[in-house]
Design a protein around this nucleic acid. Structure first.
Lengths: 377, 377
DNA sequence: CTGAAAGCGCTAACAC
DNA sequence: GTGTTAGCGCTTTCAG
């Protein structure tokens, strides 16, 4: 094809039919650069130059090549390019769940930064399963992503050590890695919780419960620490019974609230909920309790005294928190900022930054909306 | 290396140092199958067999190979594998925004299905920009994803015709393609809107407004059609002034509501909001109006009569809709079901289904929560 | 300015 | 059972 005999007009060639005899009829074979070169009557490298906008091609030659490309419907095969260049133009993101409204904001930020660097995003959900995190992270390494951002589910990240040694760039977000030194971006969980609980204390509360979920979660542990700090600073003794750590199922939350709020002797007057899932579960239960109290006994004519509602501050902002009554006061961390910082750090590393691993801590914001400013009875 | 001279003990080799002299110190060179083969003292193909769990390798040999793999920290390079096999084990998803709570549910479902087929997910946000959709879709084609799911932003999908011809599998979700025949998964927008508006009519409303955003959006158009159907079926005349089509910015929404609700002659008594963004914007504005009416003039002692609140049914479910007061009645489409159906369809095609393009329409669900059951004044 | 040749790391065909 | 060879489609190197 590349011999001097190939003197026929470039546009007149019938096109090479490369599909093997047995190929399925639906799956057409894609043309390659070689095909384009043949069609345009130029060398392979010239096509490559045109496709990659490299200089040193006569405009006329380039036009010829582009014509062939369009006619053939050629599209460069990135697998081959990646194999040769070593860069994939992709970053991997492993997090708990892409469908979660919190994490999808993080993912969105990562994608946006990646885009400015010409990279596409692999999004993978670990479902908070350590094995799955490992499996996904390694699958992404196998795909030779340029870099990896991980929101850890695993409690040991030694499995990544060989990858780091082999040159993989990894940044952890929201939770730090265990048994591994790597860049990390965190929210200031302890300080945020301290301020949130401090806010309740400022509004006159002393008997404040901490409602969290998994006790072995890093963020919950940090936030609990913040709670203890705030209480200690206020010289408020903590009853260990006020600390509820259980998955936020409706029944469990109900029991917890009953125990905390309906204790005739010493009910708590305020709740600090340790993350958005818990906050929502608690809000739902509080709503049920309100309805249960007011619906049956109070006739609609007399405005029933609203059932005593505990003050509430939640960690993590939640959608429509401002439209609820009362508005939900929260300690908001910014998942977008988290993702953006992690992605930026990643691309700095990819650009050659060799400094020792860094940890970036992002501030949280206290947003008063009503629920956290309710006074004690 | 592979000549007969290579008779040294397999495990004793110093390991090939393949890093070129000028390589940056941080980026180590990854070992290849060839390195593993040398280290284990076996042939390349044997390593390949072990890595791919192919049969026909003596357990002892396999153990030897695995040892070398671990020692070297070998991980198969998927780019090379992809180049050879033609399959990438990746699917692409182009949608408006991965950070959107609606679309991230769709993305989560796609990822979950992909996972059962051993595929990873590329998630890309078009930001509803036609050019960006095109750019991303073609970039994914260049990467030779096994298949592509697109939530269209573009108004013309002819640009994908060469890709389809070349064998790319594409499924459209939520909105149909234009100028292209391809598989599509839609929600029953028209019927959903018809039922939602019908619900308001059943509750005694006749003067019902339709509040949507972009008038050129497929979904808005379909839902408006559903609105007109319902009104026509009820023999309720439609005042074209009730149809508000504008982006849901706060000021615009405020003006719209003022026009619709404060008309002293003939205010509408109910609102049908055409998607979740509009619904939320309207709810926010209604809340402001309530506060504005009750805060200033009414002293806290006398329970001010609640400002007349229009009934409201929204298209799309929204987070915490049940906790608002009143609860928000919605016509819910199931983004997870949408994503799952699209992904399943995609993998059926990849498995060889050659039938002509199909369109799947998914039902919607009317969820009464209070706002849609408010009677007219 | 252009092109031929080498090879990225792997798998598919065949040797042995 | 195991090894050798020949590419996959591209970029790199170096020669015209």
């Amino acid at each position: 094809m590349h011999s001097g005999a190939n003197a026929s007009p470039p546009t007149a060639g019938p096109g090479r039919e490369r599909r093997p005899a047995g190929a399925s009829p639906g799956r057409a074979q894609r043309p390659t650069m070689k095909d384009v070169a043949a069609r345009a009557g130029v060398g392979l490298k010239t096509v490559s130059r045109v496709v990659n906008d490299e200089p040193g091609v006569l405009p006329d030659t380039a036009a010829l090549v582009r014509k062939a490309i369009d006619e053939l419907g050629f599209r460069r095969n990135d697998s081959a390019r990646q194999l040769r260049t070593g860069r994939t133009g992709g970053v991997g993101l492993v997090l708990e769940d892409v469908a979660d409204p919190f994490y999808c904001l993080l993912a969105g930020a990562v994608e946006q930064v990646a885009r400015t660097h010409g990279s596409l995003l692999f999004a993978a959900s670990s479902q908070d399963d350590p094995d799955r995190e490992c499996e996904l992270a390694l699958a992404l390494c196998e795909r030779r992503v340029d870099g990896l951002i991980i929101v850890p589910a695993a409690h040991d990240h030694a499995y990544l050590a060989p990858e780091l040694e082999a040159g993989m760039t990894v940044v952890f977000a929201e939770r730090p890695p265990v048994n591994l030194a790597a860049d990390t971006v965190l929210a200031d969980n302890l300080e945020g919780a301290r301020r949130g609980v401090g806010h309740l204390i400022e509004h006159g509360h002393h008997r404040i419960a901490f409602v969290g979920d998994a006790p072995d979660s890093y963020t919950t542990a940090q936030r609990l620490l913040g709670y203890r700090c705030a209480m200690a600073e206020a010289r408020s003794p903590v009853d260990e019974g006020w600390i509820a750590l259980a998955p936020p199922g409706p029944q469990l939350v109900r029991n917890t609230l009953t125990r905390l709020l309906d204790d005739p002797a010493e009910p708590v007057t305020a709740l600090f909920t340790a993350n958005s899932q818990v906050t929502v579960a608690v809000l739902r239960e509080l709503a049920v309790r309100s309805r249960g109290t007011s619906a049956a006994p109070a006739p609609p004519r007399a405005p029933a005294p609203p059932p005593r509602r505990p003050a509430l501050v939640g960690f993590d902002d939640i959608e429509l928190a401002d439209l609820l009554d009362p508005g939900v006061t929260v300690v908001a961390q910014d998942p977008t900022a988290l993702g953006r910082a992690a992605a930026r750090l990643l691309f700095e590393r990819l650009a050659g930054d060799d400094a020792p691993p860094r940890t970036i801590t992002l501030p949280t914001a206290l947003i008063p909306r009503g629920s956290g400013e309710l006074p004690p009875p």
